[in-house]
Design a protein around this nucleic acid. Structure first.
Lengths: 197, 197
DNA sequence: TGAAGCTGACTGACCAGTCAATCGATCGCC
DNA sequence: GGCGATCGATTGACTGGTCAGTCAGCTTCA
């Protein structure tokens, strides 16, 4: 685990992102990942105990950062609208920075949470809960109306963001910086107008 | 193909819904479907050319009805809000009527459109286009503001609905009639307030 | 010299799809 | 009204291919 030498574990993880994004988790072979990483088949099992553990690792690495971002946003002194903007921006920038990883997380994990263990489900719920928290605080401050439950608002918000990402993922239309910024604004604008008093 | 005799093709399709919902498309075996249907293994291949064709059939059967419902709603003389309410109501009632089928469609098809052929992608896009059409007409009539593109609004709307269904699918909390009605109202209320002038 | 990093051939299980054979309903014909 | 021909429906054992995960051994470096 030297710093100078290439960290093969990392190389395998990065290769797995590309392979999962290209072929899908179920359809790809472990040997595809090894080939993509330029590494012997067995080495994959030196670092990971199963194909699924690779996916788990990729998901958790990113998701935990997102949970922290949501919590940090809620803890800040910004307006609810700005807080939600920060969350949308984080997710959209994650896609912008590494679309393949986000594709894998959305398509293979977030939307297939039943086939895997319940660990992921719990993590995913934490994200909803975090967003719901933002809404709840806004309601307590009288800034959002209270007809709509926080849980519900969180689902609508997260669902909108994920659906927009899904559109980009599947439509294969190249997206530039202005579209990303525009998307952040539009989502927050639409949902917040619906939630604000 | 008598009326009195059981239509085995239908029996197989219905069994497949249960098996796909329970075990997932990738994880289940064709023999599981045959067993669930109380039918010999080979009969599945008498009616369907592959496991995937069964899933395709289930998806298209339902999705085409939905596309018709969206088109019909847009063609009506109702207000944009009522049109969108009708769409949300259709989807939510579909879930209410047959949650297992909707689970399969959402989890295995809608959200995994990359692994399968592009046929499904096209069908799914048709639904967005239909919803976008409703928004577009509303904008043309000056009822919705035009800052938000119809395509974008459609994604936000559909994404919200699907996310709410996903919550029900995975949370395994029993849902009653009032919750279904409430969900329809809340989604439409949230999104339309964001879109209306 | 020894331990961690690394290799890739091998195996055991699994399963989609095939197929040859049987069943049974319907029909034409005497 | 009985008899066999025909053909779709139905059966389930079998095959061929695939692949996750194993393991025995080699390499490298401290």
């Amino acid at each position: 685990m030297t710093t100078a030498a290439v960290d093969k574990r990392r190389v395998i993880l990065d290769a797995a992102v590309r392979v999962f994004a290209r072929q899908g988790f179920h359809t790809c072979r472990v040997s595809d990942i090894a080939d993509e990483a330029g590494v012997a088949y067995g080495l994959v099992y030196h670092y990971f105990s199963s194909k699924e553990e690779i996916l788990d690792t990729l998901f958790l690495e990113r998701w935990d950062v997102m949970l922290a971002a949501i919590a940090e946003s809620d803890a800040s002194q910004r307006s609810p609208r700005d807080k939600l903007y920060a969350v949308a921006a984080f997710i959209i920038d994650s896609y912008r920075h590494d679309p393949e990883l986000m594709k894998v997380i959305i398509v293979e994990v977030t939307r297939a949470a039943n086939t895997f263990g319940l660990t992921h489900l719990e993590k995913i719920r934490e994200a909803y809960a975090g967003i719901a928290g933002i809404v709840e605080h806004a309601q307590a401050d009288g800034l959002f109306r209270s007809e709509i439950t926080p849980e519900f608002a969180a689902q609508a918000f997260y669902g909108s963001v994920e659906q927009v990402l899904t559109g980009w993922i599947f439509d294969s239309v190249p997206i530039g910086a202005p579209e990303f910024e525009r998307a952040k604004t539009l989502i927050v604008e639409t949902i917040c107008r619906g939630l604000e008093r």
